[in-house]
């Protein structure tokens, strides 16, 4: 009896969490220009509309390119910093680590405002470079934390063994350390990509008409029009996120190859 009640309770909570997404997904399958749940018919009308309209495709391509660049830059920076923090021995290491992950805890609005003033002074507003720098700033701590965790769980004697066998610091890094943490580095790249691809606050502050990312375009669409295309995009983004999560699980360390 108590067990059944627990299942019921858990089921209701799960429904509460998933229901909004399910409503969006189901509604997106209609073809009417008024959003209706349940939809009166089933069609991929708004998906076709999304793929056929330059005002949506442009921001989508920009977001994809931006997220890919951020994945590269944030992973490079985060991995380097993680290795330095994990293997170096110098004063103030703990303080430096706190400083490097601080963008994760500072409110995004505050960061975005700071970036706005910084880039306006440098005449970089509405320039892709500004978005790339801003998103790299947000994604690097995520990459750092992931790779740091990977390094913590790798055995230091592996690197010591490599050194004793004649490999210097760089060759040890290339042949032993990086292969040992490759899952963490891959996860860092995936999550850096997502941080940028989902990001809207910095995009609104430092982006402009020439640099409208997909989330910014969606935000504008919500404010100024009610276009059911949004539902199709939201569904696609949800599916993308699920795909990335599955990819992340597939990349989990310890998986047998």
């Amino acid at each position: 009896m108590a067990r059944a009640a627990l299942w019921l309770f858990g089921g209701l909570i799960a429904l509460f969490l998933v229901a909004p997404i399910l409503v969006v997904m189901v509604t997106s399958l209609g073809s009417s220009s008024f959003m209706a749940f349940p939809p009166r018919d089933v069609s991929l009308h708004w998906y076709a509309h999304f793929l056929g309209s330059p005002q949506w495709i442009g921001p989508t391509l920009l977001s994809l390119r931006l997220a890919a660049s951020v994945a590269v830059s944030a992973t490079l920076l985060g991995t380097s910093a993680a290795i330095g923090l994990a293997r170096g021995s110098f004063r103030g290491r703990a303080a430096l680590e706190m400083f490097l992950i601080s963008p994760m805890v500072v409110p995004v609005v505050v960061l975005a405002l700071g970036l706005y003033f910084l880039f306006s002074g440098a005449h970089l507003l509405d320039h892709p470079l500004a978005l790339w720098l801003g998103h790299t700033l947000l994604a690097t701590p995520v990459a750092l934390v992931l790779v740091r965790a990977g390094l913590r769980s790798t055995d230091r004697s592996l690197e010591r063994a490599a050194r004793s066998l004649g490999a210097g610091f760089w060759r040890t890094l290339r042949h032993v350390t990086l292969p040992a943490i490759r899952e963490s580095v891959a996860a860092a790249a995936v999550f850096s990509f997502l941080v940028s691809f989902d990001e809207v606050v910095v995009a609104i502050f430092v982006g402009g008409p020439a640099t409208t990312t997909l989330p910014k375009r969606m935000w504008e669409s919500v404010r100024f029009e009610t276009d059911p295309t949004l539902l199709a995009i939201a569904t696609l983004l949800t599916l993308l996120a699920v795909a990335v999560l599955l990819l992340g699980a597939w990349l989990r360390p310890g998986r047998q190859t």
């Binding site: 004697s157 592996l158 063994a161 004793s164 066998l165 490999a167 292969p179």
Partner: peptide
């Protein structure tokens, strides 16, 4: 530096490189 000493070390937990075959480990 350790890599310039020409000293072999055998560790308690073996410290074999998990992503290399036995042959690659010994060839390293």
């Amino acid at each position: 530096a350790p890599e310039r000493r020409n000293i072999g070390v055998v560790f308690q937990n073996y410290a074999l490189f998990p992503h290399m075959t036995v042959q690659e480990n010994v060839a390293f």
